[in-house]
């Protein structure tokens, strides 16, 4: 059913994204030898998946609720801190695997509850005032970051140890790659496919897709849209918190991680076309690959990764010049 929906526009968007990916690949093979290419690609995928985990919720929430949730990065960071707290609070003698899984599950549950609470208590009174919602989520982000800084200190926590199998390296082509990054890629892939199936194949999904286009209409058809809003916001927050806890054993948990990932996530959803889920997923991977490639180039020739963060901004500008609504975005 959905394939019939994909018009020329969709094919054209895919083509642009595909050409860009091929160009990146070609660039990689031109500059680096194959061992490094493999590492760059895997690194791009792992970064892309983390961006995806933050941006996915933002994009769906923006589409359905018309709220640009600037607190999403802070939810990501909170997921890491909550996960670490659970990990460390379990009694001595608990196997590492159990701690690790408990931390992941705990982050998801915490994220879901927090998201539902924020939507019901803070966002709901403000649907008539969209600008206030942006200010509110920005304030929430600042408050959460400062709170964490106050409680845990500004420098961050020592990364917790993941299970042994995820705490080693494997040889990829002629390069070495941490298995934990593969785990991050796997988590991202599972969620990408899962959310996509949810949106395309289930009745909740079709209500969300319809609501993204016209939530008032969905309400007129007899759906309690407010309840769907709460559910979707909670899901988005849960995914972000899971992302934070997934990233943290590798990146560590520190107060500023929220802001860093928020900025990249905004770039990702702008490139993807704001409320398009597919666009967000593809854009996240492209941004990850761009970042990893430019990072490697920058390290190799300038001895500093400085160009990496600039490159994704340039990428965004170029995409917006070619297509002002983003890769997969349509004008309203």
């Amino acid at each position: 059913m959905t394939t019939k929906l994909r018009s020329g526009f969709w094919r054209q968007s895919l083509l642009i994204a595909g050409l860009f990916a091929i160009a990146l690949l070609a660039l990689n093979f031109l500059i680096f030898d194959t061992g490094i290419v493999a590492v760059v690609l895997l690194s791009g995928f792992y970064q892309g998946m983390l961006f995806f985990l933050v941006a996915a919720g933002m994009s769906i929430v923006f589409g359905l609720l018309d709220v640009l949730n600037l607190a999403q990065g802070s939810f990501f960071m909170l997921g890491a801190y909550v996960g670490f707290a659970i990990y460390n609070a379990l009694p001595e003698g608990t196997p590492i695997t159990v701690r690790f899984v408990a931390a992941l599950v705990g982050a998801v549950v915490f994220g879901g509850v927090l998201g539902a609470g924020v939507e019901i208590a803070l966002l709901r009174p403000l649907y008539v005032r969209p600008i206030f919602q942006i200010v509110l989520t920005f304030g929430l982000a600042t408050a959460i970051t400062e709170l964490v800084r106050g409680i845990y200190g500004p420098s961050g926590l020592v990364p917790v140890e993941p299970p042994a199998a995820l705490n080693t390296t494997i040889a990829v082509m002629r390069g070495q790659f941490e298995t934990y990054r593969l785990f991050i890629i796997a988590v991202g892939l599972v969620l990408m496919i899962g959310i996509s199936l949810l949106l395309q194949r289930t009745r909740l999904g079709i209500i969300i897709r319809a609501g993204v286009q016209d939530s008032q209409m969905v309400e007129a058809l007899g759906i309690n849209v407010r309840r769907v809003f709460t559910l979707v916001f909670a899901l988005g927050t849960a995914v972000a918190a899971l992302g934070g806890m997934t990233a943290a054993p590798f990146l560590g948990a520190y107060p500023a991680m929220g802001e860093q990932f928020l900025l990249t996530a905004i770039i990702v959803i702008v490139i993807g076309g704001m409320s398009s889920f597919e666009g967000t997923a593809i854009a996240a991977l492209l941004v990850g690959l761009t970042r990893a490639t430019v990072e490697q180039i920058s390290l190799q020739y300038l001895n500093t990764p400085i160009l990496a963060s600039i490159s994704i901004l340039v990428f965004m500008v170029v995409v917006l010049l070619v297509r002002p609504t983003g890769l997969f975005g349509r004008e309203a």
């Binding site: 059913m1 009745r203 079709i206 209500i207 897709r209 319809a210 286009q213 559910l231």
Partner: peptide, 24 residues
């Protein structure tokens, strides 16, 4: 008021489904 990027059939099915019981 229609859902532009859903198919005609999906548009109508959302409406039927909206009154069904198991949306959640």
């Amino acid at each position: 008021n229609i859902f532009p990027s859903l198919t005609v059939f999906e548009n109508v099915r959302v409406a039927v489904q909206a009154l069904g019981k198991h949306n959640f």
